[in-house]
Design a protein around this nucleic acid. Structure first.
Lengths: 195, 195
DNA sequence: GGAATCCTTTAACAAATGATAAATTATAGA
DNA sequence: TCTATAATTTATCATTTGTTAAAGGATTCC
């Protein structure tokens, strides 16, 4: 659990009482490679912290699988839309690598806000950062070419090395064929970059 | 000020004391058509509620003006990235139509959180909705063609009627020429729609 | 180790969008 | 109202990305 609190305390210092309140609504789970920790159609009631492993969120658009999000270990992942609206989610959370997650009961977590304003503040601050990240990504996708987006993602070495290309393509908003073409061109002009 | 509280109370009921605390950090401003209520380069310290008028946020990408956001009367507008990071903003807030805005001192507003957890909750809930809206927009831009995005925007009649097309093009992530082409095609197949 | 399956690349062509320039239409000010 | 300016459309060509199909590599599982 300590990794989770280290993560939280990047945003907001917590008292021992607050930490204990959070501990009681968490459980630790081992998850196999390729398993789904949340399935399409269910309503989300959980926020996950990735202790180890690699995760993606995906959904289907016109019958084609689309990867929306990746999370490396040391980060949170949740199907936020479903969590906030309490409607069934069109998305699934998929383990790309086996690992361990901390499952936070979101319903109970939200209830803690009434007793511990500091926990609501923590959540608020994480939400602010998440908001800024989506705005960044929106701008990247709206005003950069696929080639530029791929070049930017190349800087995230861990992701590029661990994630199959077919998942990266839809994350970048392009087809797999198009990504292959970009990579072929890219390594012509940048022979030192990974193939 | 009452419109502002009506807006807030869609999210969170406020006590008279809380409202009074908010009133003391607000001021009402009349703004001319075409004026900038916030200029590029300044650091944002204000959240605006549009009592009347029409507003956009824009910035420059590679020397080309890009419209990021429109706000109709009855909504909030802020340069959120600058507000949250307290760094100078690359964006400006531009009145497309004359009107009246309520300027909320954001620094003081954030300070109210320590005294009034309800106000922090109000802010948190507005942030949640804003987050969901950006995620929606990201998906729309990532997985719909320019034609589809234009068709969707057509349903927002007020915006389409009041906003010059040159501002709409970059909002949709396309050039003005491309928007013209889409419109020409669109009215061929939909002769009843506005030209 | 071999067969089956999955992942990635390549090729050829189609469709969408960008860039530039010019023509047309609308708007605002004198 | 007339003129200057701004906004929008149209035309042409270049570039990017999508679509489909096939081939080549890699991986998994028996």
């Amino acid at each position: 659990m300590e990794e989770l609190f280290d993560y939280f305390e990047q945003f907001q210092k917590l008292s021992e009482i607050e930490k204990e309140a959070i501990r009681t609504i968490c459980s630790i789970k081992k998850v196999d490679k390729s398993s789904l920790i949340e399935e399409i159609g269910s309503t989300s009631k959980t926020i996950y912290f990735i202790k180890s492993g690699l995760v993606r969120i995906y959904y289907y658009k016109d019958g084609i699988e689309v990867t929306e999000f990746f999370a490396l270990s040391g980060n949170l992942v949740a199907r936020v839309q479903s969590l906030l609206t309490q409607k069934p989610s069109a998305k699934a959370i998929h383990m790309l690598e086996a690992g361990t997650v901390i499952a936070i009961n979101a319903t109970k977590f939200f209830k803690l806000f009434d007793t511990f304003p500091t926990i609501e503040r923590l959540y608020r601050m994480m939400l602010e950062v998440a908001y800024l990240e989506v705005v960044e990504r929106l701008q990247s996708i709206q005003f950069h070419s696929a080639k530029e987006r791929y070049a930017a993602l190349m800087n995230n070495h861990e992701l590029i090395q661990k994630v199959p290309l077919k998942f990266i393509a839809s994350y970048l908003g392009i087809t797999q064929v198009s990504l292959s073409r970009i990579r072929a061109n890219h390594s012509k002009t940048n022979p030192l970059n990974p193939q």
